[in-house]
Design a protein around this nucleic acid. Structure first.
Lengths: 187, 187
DNA sequence: GTCTATAATTAGATAGAC
DNA sequence: GTCTATCTAATTATAGAC
């Protein structure tokens, strides 16, 4: 693996664990086993490297979510597969976590991939729920877009509660609760 | 207002907006209009001041949540009052947001009030939902503790989605969605 | 209690040698 | 491409005068 690649992957890890404000160029260099000069040769600075890492994290998140949401089966099975997919719960969401970072929110460039990824996820969840309504799996009064936002919020909030508690249990329970509420809507 | 009080309140504001890692002693001093010496006279350092500010934010959060949850009416009305209480949505949750901060999570002392406050909220939501089940407002198969975690997660996740989008809409929609799911459980 | 001086460390980067 | 030297500002304090 070349240096630029090691730098990006190290930044992905550190952004995920410590956020943008909590990640220094020095920490990135040490994690990537690259020198100062090397880092500044490949990237103009911290924010440019962070942008590459955030985009990469966004790509990976989309691929993993899409894998669950495009599996064969009913709409409920797809949502369930998404909710129960393997996650490093205590690390939090690699994209959603950045929404708490003041420097990310202050930069239109760094914020864009965060916004776009969550918008994409919302659209995918909405499409799957709409498919469920069309097939008579859910009642016609279930609004796909609204419910998609709720499901996405349960996942993001589940991460927050789990990290605060230092335990995966709140995430698991939050997901279980929303699934039960959704199941009771099934015809 | 005396200096110690101004320092605590300034730290409350800054922790809420920028987190612990993103808040420097200098920024606190400027916001509080206090000098270096003054700050270090009243508090041993950043973390001691942050602890006081986090505890204060936790108290305020509890008071505001309790105000909604103890209003007269049905369980559903209490939950609804909690969900729709006035919030500075784009600022995020003053307690939940800290669960994303690496230095908060790494310190048992700073983390404790975060954990405790969310645990308290969970217990209060659970009690109100249990009351709703007892009174026949919700079906007996609704598990209060699980549903309380889901509701709490929707709120925390709603904040995350709203901040990422730069709009209050996702929060409002996430709350609306969980309320509709909950209403459909009503007898 | 508050102020100013001082300081060790890190953050974030530039310049130029190799 | 990578390394080392250098640099300015910020971070997080401590010391001692007033």
């Amino acid at each position: 693996m070349d240096t630029a690649e090691r730098l990006i992957r190290s930044t992905q890890e550190l952004l995920w664990e410590r956020g943008y404000v909590g990640t220094s160029p020095k920490a990135i260099q040490q994690h990537a086993q690259a020198g100062q000069g090397s880092m500044y040769h490949h990237f103009a600075g911290k924010s440019e490297l962070a942008l590459a890492a955030i985009r990469r994290n966004a790509e990976e998140l989309r691929a993993e979510a899409e894998s669950a949401l495009s599996r064969p089966g009913t709409a409920h099975e797809k949502i369930s597969a998404y909710l129960h997919r393997e996650r490093a719960i205590l690390r939090g969401c690699r994209i959603g976590g950045l929404a708490q970072d003041p420097d990310i929110l202050a930069s239109a460039e760094l914020r864009q991939p965060v916004t776009e990824t969550l918008d994409w996820l919302h659209a995918r969840l909405t499409a799957v729920l709409a498919e469920g309504v069309t097939h008579g799996e859910f009642p016609a009064d279930l609004d796909p877009a609204t419910t998609a936002t709720t499901i996405s919020a349960v996942v993001q909030g589940g991460y927050v509660l789990a990290r605060a508690a230092g335990s995966e249990a709140p995430f698991t329970q939050a997901v279980e609760g929303v699934e039960k509420l959704l199941l009771s809507k099934q015809l």
